[in-house]
């Protein structure tokens, strides 16, 4: 029952997010707004709701499963961009490696080292 109650809380915050998105001038997804609201609610009550914790673990473990259907579609539309494939792949591979390198470098310079007790 705890999991279902937690799921209801998630839905309530998702619905709140969907309502707030209507008032925002930019297109942010309702889920992200809901996540921020839920974090704020935890801060305000000074702790987490046990039901939400119970439902969040299996849901987060499912994230990979939930993005899979989107991946399947690529195999069926790849042909449309075949003539651009070289430019697209080079941009994605080199661009991503470069951005990973620069973010790691930036963060290492700016983040203080982790306290040794952990």
């Amino acid at each position: 029952m705890s999991v279902l109650r937690g799921f209801l809380w998630l839905l309530v915050f998702l619905l709140l997010g969907q309502a707030i998105v209507l008032w925002l001038p930019i297109a942010l997804p309702a889920g992200v707004i809901g996540m921020l609201l839920l974090t704020l609610w935890f801060c305000q009550r000074g702790g987490m709701n046990a039901d939400v914790v119970a439902v969040s673990q299996p849901l987060i473990a499912m994230l990979a499963l939930l993005i899979m259907p989107g991946v399947v579609e690529i195999f069926f539309v790849a042909g449309r961009f075949a003539d651009q494939a070289g430019a697209i792949l080079t941009a994605l591979l080199l661009g991503t490696l470069a951005s990973v390198a620069s973010s790691l470098w930036l963060m290492r310079r700016c983040l203080p080292p982790e306290p040794p007790h952990e």
């Binding site: 998702l14 992200v32 996540m35 974090t39």
Partner: peptide, 9 residues
């Protein structure tokens, strides 16, 4: 949607 909200934990 709910899974994204659950990332609050």
């Amino acid at each position: 949607g709910p899974a994204t909200v659950a990332l609050a934990v």
